[in-house]
Design a protein around this nucleic acid. Structure first.
Lengths: 128, 128, 128, 128
DNA sequence: GTGGTCTAGACCACC
DNA sequence: GTGGTCTAGACCACG
């Protein structure tokens, strides 16, 4: 498990870790039922504080992406277990972010087709 | 010019203002050459400090979305004046964000078509 | 007399006018003894307030670059009349600015020769 | 880290701080990878508000001279990481400033050789 | 009237 | 501990 983290930059490290792991699950780098590295492992790999990693894991857990078991550590949950939870709120948030991204894309000179192609190829990267 | 701002919440107010204005420009609520409200106006409308609004305007200025003309206040720039500059960096950032969004969408149970439809309708909401 | 003015941007318009005129005198576009356009002329050409132009002329006068005569308007002074005045202060200011420019040039990757070549060609542009 | 700041005077304090730090990096007073004083430290040394220092740091950051690492504070970037980005715009700005300086130098009675010597010795003051 | 700057003091998230 | 954010109120230069 190798994560791209930008130590400087505005986004908090624990959020970056969370994001990278969500991407990793989406891409199938780690599948449902598999273990995430331990907090200590990941912290030492990235050269950061264990608290920071722990915070990321707690975030992932609270969002329903993983479960933490005292014996097995952090385990990725299946997609179907996630569906339906917070459905409405999530949709709203997603739509808001897409609205912002598409506004910016348009102002940067992308046309509709280019934008949609980018969206499609991003999603395609997720397919197993 | 009415902006939806979440006073509590993690995203800094000045970033929210920036985002809302980018959306507004994208949708055509304000067109190239038109004025944004003055710093004082917007600040009093939103019930916040002028410096917070000023910070948002400076951010928009540094990103090339607006200009501040000493005589006319803040003016929206044309879309074409933006193209090309830092093109590559922007693409990379956009792709990264779409990757994250599509990973999360997939894990939340959306299929490819649903995701793309959402992207398309977000872009369609922008000015023709 | 055509001046490049950036209406937005950090530098006050009257300072930009002052700078452009100093460059113009240096290049020989206007020679010692010649007239500058009247305040009204220049203001209408640039589409700005007469007060702004007037302020620029007052600045040039206070620095000794021009003289204003009620009958003849603003007249460019000769180089020799300028020499010696404020000699020490000017040198200090110039050295300070060159220090900053060379620091920045170095950090931007220019080597000494490139920097000096730029300085030389800038000065060469001034020779009549 | 001691900076010469002119509290009264036209140039904003945060710009002066930025300029002094750029010079400091150029001269090698602080090298790549080294830390700048913390915002609070510098603010109390200079007897000014933290926000003013913060503004200077953000400016330096936006220009690519420093990074702010949440763990280590503000860190000077290597010179090479700067090269190439916005190269053209920078050159234009530098040439414009040199044009103004050399025009003024000529009108103040400096000849070409004197001017170039000043440029050369300014650059020579920078770190080898 | 505008935006830009600064202060003094405060709170917060991050690590 | 750090930098980031925000406030309330003020002053200034610009045009």
């Amino acid at each position: 498990m190798i994560l791209k983290i930008d130590m400087s930059g505005a986004i908090p490290i624990y959020v970056q870790i969370r994001n990278e792991i969500v991407k990793g699950i989406g891409k199938g780098d780690v599948s449902a039922g598999e273990n995430l590295p331990t907090v200590r492992q990941l912290a030492s790999e990235l050269g950061i504080n264990t608290m920071t990693v722990s915070k990321a894991y707690q975030l992932l857990k609270s969002e329903g992406f993983i479960e933490t078991d005292r014996r097995k550590g952090a385990v990725v949950k299946g997609t179907h277990e996630l569906k339906g939870s917070l459905e409405g709120l999530y949709r709203e948030k997603l739509e808001g972010e897409l609205e912002l991204l598409s506004a910016e894309a348009k102002l940067r000179g992308l046309d509709k087709q280019e934008f949609i192609d980018l969206c499609a190829s991003a999603f395609a990267g997720m397919e197993v």
